[in-house]
Computed example of a mutant assay.
Amino acid sequence: MANSAQAEKRARQAEKRRRQNASQRSTLRTFIKKVVKAIEAGDKEAAMQAYQSAVPQIDSAANKGTIHANKAARHKSRLNAHIKAMA
């Protein structure tokens, strides 16, 4: 329970930030799932298109601090490796 105006404001800001982060994370996961589903379906063309649209979302999440830069790089690298492994 906030006992001062400053604490109330910080609580409001923290809640707003939490919602924004949750939304960003959810969007990121959705884009990654689209790529994974295309890979599992064996459709290389669809996987490439999904990957192309996922990369800016991954980079955006990393730039905003929602995820760590190394995690973003790891996601991009692994997804791309899976796509390239498709014959």
Rank of each mutant, 00 (worst) to 15 (best):
S26M: 06
L28G: 01
F31A: 15
R25C: 06
P56S: 02
R19Q: 15
T27Y: 10
K33M: 14
I58R: 07
H68V: 05
P56I: 03
P56C: 00
S4D: 01
K37N: 15
A69H: 10
A2I: 01
N80S: 11
H68S: 14
R74G: 08
I32S: 01
A38Q: 00
S53R: 07
Q57A: 13
A85R: 05
G65A: 04
R18D: 11
M1V: 15
R17W: 07
R17H: 13
S77L: 05
Q20L: 04
A47G: 04
K9C: 02
A11F: 04
A46H: 00
R19W: 12
V36R: 14
S26D: 01
A54K: 03
K84Y: 06
N80T: 09
Q24G: 11
E45Q: 13
I58T: 01
Q57I: 11
E8A: 15
K33D: 12
A11P: 11
Q57N: 00
K9N: 09
K76S: 07
M86S: 04
S77W: 05
N70T: 13
A41G: 09
R12D: 09
T27A: 06
E8H: 14
T66A: 07
A11W: 11
Y51S: 05
A41E: 13
K37L: 14
A85V: 08
A38R: 00
P56V: 07
R25N: 08
Q13A: 09
K37Q: 14
Q24S: 14
S26H: 11
Y51C: 04
R78V: 11
A61G: 00
I58V: 08
K33I: 15
N21Q: 14
A22F: 07
K16N: 01
T30Q: 05
I67G: 01
